[in-house]
């Protein structure tokens, strides 16, 4: 189980290989990779700067990873989140989950990215032709995270 918060890019293939090497109990891996889009709210985005809260970021990501492990039978989980200046097409985040069976891998990966979006202390500053602007949180992200809380019944979204 690994959490990495880094400025540098990551190699999805190399991370997948490292995660599964020698672990033949794994039956399937689900990967989610988030990328920087070139459009947001109808405006073109030339770059994005991700700020975070060092210390709390790692703590929160480790907590949601532990929550995923408590809910699903996982052989491994990996979260990599970048910070700093990124451009359209750049990778922002990788969430990977490995389990004996696909259902646990799919569901836990979906859970992790939904929860990460509402709990991990990152903030996006977009550069647009109109100038720089802080991205506002979306109600749809809260709803996506709350879905997992309702399903379980013991967590507040």
């Amino acid at each position: 189980m690994t959490v990495k918060v880094q400025r540098e890019d990551f190699d999805v293939g190399a991370e997948l290989a490292a995660m599964t090497r020698g672990k033949t109990s794994i039956g399937g891996v689900t990967l989610f990779v988030g990328l920087v889009r070139d459009m947001a709210g109808g405006e073109s985005v030339s770059a994005m700067t991700l700020e975070h809260y060092p210390g709390m970021t790692e703590k929160q990501l480790e907590a949601i990873e532990a929550e995923a492990r408590a809910r699903w039978p996982l052989d491994d989980a990996l979260i990599i989140h970048r910070y700093g200046r990124l451009e359209p097409g750049d990778q922002i985040v990788l969430v990977a989950t490995a389990s004996a069976h696909r259902e646990a891998a799919f569901e836990s990966c979906h859970f992790l990215i939904d929860w990460l979006k509402t709990k991990a202390p990152f903030w996006k500053l977009e550069a647009t032709p109109e100038g720089e602007r802080w991205v506002e949180a979306k109600d749809s992200d809260d709803a996506a995270a709350a879905r997992w809380a309702n399903q379980d019944g013991d967590q507040k979204g």
Binding site: H81, L116, T118, P121, F122, W123, A137
Partner: peptide
Amino acid sequence: ALFPPVTGG
């Protein structure tokens, strides 16, 4: 720490 709603991912 005080901050706006988070927007990572």
